[in-house]
Amino acid sequence: MIGILKRDISLLISSKQMIIFMLFYIPLLLFVSESFVPEILYFMILVFYTYMMSTTSFTYDLTGKSKYVINSLPINRNELVIYKYLSIFIYFSITVVYAGVYLWIINILKLADVDYFNLRGIMNAIPTIMIYVSIVFPTFIRFEPRVAQIINIILFMTFSIISSNISYTGDKGALKYLGVLKWEYIMAIALVMYILSLLLSIHLYKNRDI
């Protein structure tokens, strides 16, 4: 697993697209979301960064010819899928540190007043990411890369719209309606979805032609 993580992080660092996303996504969000609740802005940053890193590395072993390399190395398919699911927590930890430092610098420089560490934001981001990957990962394994990408984009857009609406502080914002949902329930749902999705992905990947 250390080998794949090393590979994934090396590839993420060497990808120009990922570097551009890592550097400019936070300022972009700050620019377009003046009316957002700071806590939800922080939550969105955590979810988007973790999601981008997880899905990008997930697709390395499913698309392109380099998929033959990793699948020819001494690792079995179950391990590969389990790693993919566990790696989201590693990417999440990286994101918490990276976004924390980035947002802290923004605060120090007085460019904006933003949260750079918020426990509630972190607690809400964890089940959201789990639910998100529970849907996206099996689609990448089951469908052709092009179809999976379309599903992924639809989910990403839906999530962006919902998040923007939740974080909107005006009367029409959905934030006030979400107060009824307890974190424990959402986490329980996320956990069930995550485990079912993991089992489904193991089954799909085991029987898949690379």
Partner: peptide
């Protein structure tokens, strides 16, 4: 294994790719 074309990650250096592969064996 050696395949008919390069399937290694083009953006990585030989050293990085080696250290990735080495950790599996």
């Amino acid at each position: 294994f050696v395949y008919d074309e390069n399937y290694y990650y083009e953006d990585l250096t030989i050293n990085t790719m080696k250290s990735v592969v080495a950790s599996f064996y």
